[in-house]
Lab assay of single mutants.
Amino acid sequence: QIFVKTLTGKTITLEVEPSDTIENVKAKIQDKEGIPPDQQRLIFAGKQLEDGRTLSDYNIQKESTLHLVL
């Protein structure tokens, strides 16, 4: 699982696999929060994550925290 922290300070927990794409993660966030993926920007280690890449591409491991910017 990974954590996604929103600007409001809320933390969302997501069940993911390293092979999941960023697009996939955004879809999971939409399921939980109702935020359309095209409004979501995910930041990890100061980098904006691209939809077509996977979590493992960015070396995002379990218990990692991503930041969600709208």
Rank of each mutant, 00 (worst) to 15 (best):
Q1T: 14
Q1M: 13
Q1P: 09
Q1G: 05
Q1F: 15
Q1E: 08
I2L: 08
I2R: 01
I2Q: 01
I2Y: 05
I2W: 02
I2K: 01
F3T: 06
F3M: 06
F3Q: 05
F3E: 03
F3L: 06
F3S: 05
V4P: 00
V4K: 00
V4S: 01
K5W: 06
K5I: 15
K5A: 07
K5N: 06
T6G: 06
T6M: 15
T6H: 06
L7D: 11
L7R: 10
L7P: 13
L7T: 12
L7C: 15
L7F: 14
L7G: 14
L7V: 15
T8G: 11
T8C: 15
T8D: 12
T8R: 09
G9I: 02
G9S: 04
G9R: 04
K10P: 05
K10Q: 09
K10A: 08
K10M: 09
K10Y: 13
K10T: 09
K10F: 10
K10S: 08
K10C: 13
T11P: 03
T11K: 07
T11Q: 07
I12K: 01
I12P: 00
I12L: 11
I12M: 06
I12Q: 02
T13Q: 08
T13M: 11
T13G: 05
T13S: 09
L14F: 05
L14H: 00
L14Q: 01
L14R: 00
L14P: 00
L14C: 04
L14V: 09
L14K: 00
E15I: 14
E15S: 13
E15K: 09
E15W: 14
E15R: 07
E15Q: 12
V16K: 01
V16T: 05
V16L: 07
V16D: 00
V16G: 03
V16M: 08
E17C: 13
E17L: 11
E17V: 12
E17G: 08
E17M: 11
E17D: 13
P18I: 12
P18M: 13
P18V: 10
S19F: 11
S19P: 03
S19L: 09
S19D: 12
S19T: 12
S19G: 10
D20S: 07
D20F: 07
D20K: 02
D20W: 09
D20A: 07
D20N: 08
T21V: 05
T21K: 09
T21W: 05
T21C: 05
I22S: 02
I22E: 00
I22R: 00
I22M: 04
I22V: 09
E23C: 14
E23P: 03
E23H: 11
N24V: 14
N24E: 15
N24L: 13
V25I: 14
V25P: 00
K26W: 03
K26H: 02
K26A: 02
K26D: 00
K26R: 05
K26C: 02
A27D: 08
A27R: 14
A27W: 14
A27E: 10
A27N: 12
K28V: 04
K28P: 00
K28R: 08
K28A: 07
K28I: 06
K28M: 14
I29S: 01
I29R: 00
I29P: 00
I29E: 00
Q30G: 07
Q30V: 04
Q30P: 02
Q30C: 15
Q30M: 13
D31E: 13
D31W: 09
D31C: 14
D31K: 12
K32T: 09
K32W: 06
K32N: 05
K32H: 09
K32L: 11
K32Q: 11
E33L: 14
E33P: 01
E33D: 05
E33S: 11
E33K: 04
E33G: 05
E33T: 13
G34F: 04
G34E: 04
G34A: 05
G34D: 05
G34W: 03
I35H: 09
I35N: 03
I35V: 08
I35K: 02
I35E: 02
P36Y: 05
P36W: 06
P36S: 08
P36K: 07
P37Y: 13
P37V: 14
P37T: 14
P37C: 10
P37M: 15
P37W: 12
P37H: 10
D38L: 10
D38A: 15
D38K: 11
D38P: 08
D38E: 12
Q39M: 11
Q39N: 10
Q39S: 09
Q39W: 10
Q40N: 03
Q40R: 02
Q40D: 01
Q40C: 08
Q40W: 06
R41F: 12
R41H: 11
R41I: 14
R41N: 09
R41C: 15
L42T: 00
L42P: 00
L42W: 01
L42E: 00
L42I: 07
I43F: 15
I43H: 11
I43Y: 15
I43L: 14
I43Q: 07
F44D: 01
F44Q: 02
F44V: 03
F44M: 04
F44T: 02
F44K: 03
F44A: 03
F44C: 04
A45D: 12
G46I: 02
G46R: 04
G46P: 01
G46L: 04
G46W: 05
G46F: 05
G46A: 04
G46V: 02
G46M: 04
K47A: 09
K47L: 13
K47R: 11
K47D: 06
K47S: 08
K47E: 11
Q48C: 15
Q48K: 08
L49Q: 00
L49E: 00
L49G: 01
L49I: 04
L49T: 03
L49Y: 01
L49R: 00
L49C: 05
E50Q: 09
E50C: 11
D51H: 06
D51F: 04
D51W: 04
G52I: 07
G52P: 07
G52W: 12
G52C: 12
G52D: 12
R53H: 14
R53I: 06
R53N: 10
R53A: 08
T54I: 06
L55R: 00
L55H: 00
L55E: 00
S56N: 09
S56Y: 11
S56C: 08
S56K: 11
S56Q: 15
D57Q: 07
D57R: 03
D57E: 11
D57I: 03
D57F: 15
D57Y: 14
D57K: 03
Y58D: 02
Y58A: 03
Y58V: 02
Y58N: 02
N59A: 08
N59G: 13
N59P: 03
I60H: 01
I60L: 04
I60W: 03
I60D: 01
Q61C: 09
Q61G: 12
Q61F: 09
Q61H: 11
K62I: 11
K62Y: 15
E63Y: 14
E63T: 07
E63L: 12
E63M: 11
E63D: 15
S64V: 07
S64W: 05
S64D: 12
S64I: 05
S64L: 04
T65G: 03
T65H: 15
T65D: 04
T65P: 03
L66G: 02
L66Q: 01
L66C: 01
L66Y: 02
L66V: 08
L66A: 02
H67G: 05
H67C: 15
H67T: 14
L68H: 01
L68D: 00
V69F: 12
V69T: 09
V69N: 06
V69L: 12
L70A: 09
L70K: 07
L70P: 09
L70C: 13
L70Q: 09
L70H: 11
L70Y: 11
L70D: 09
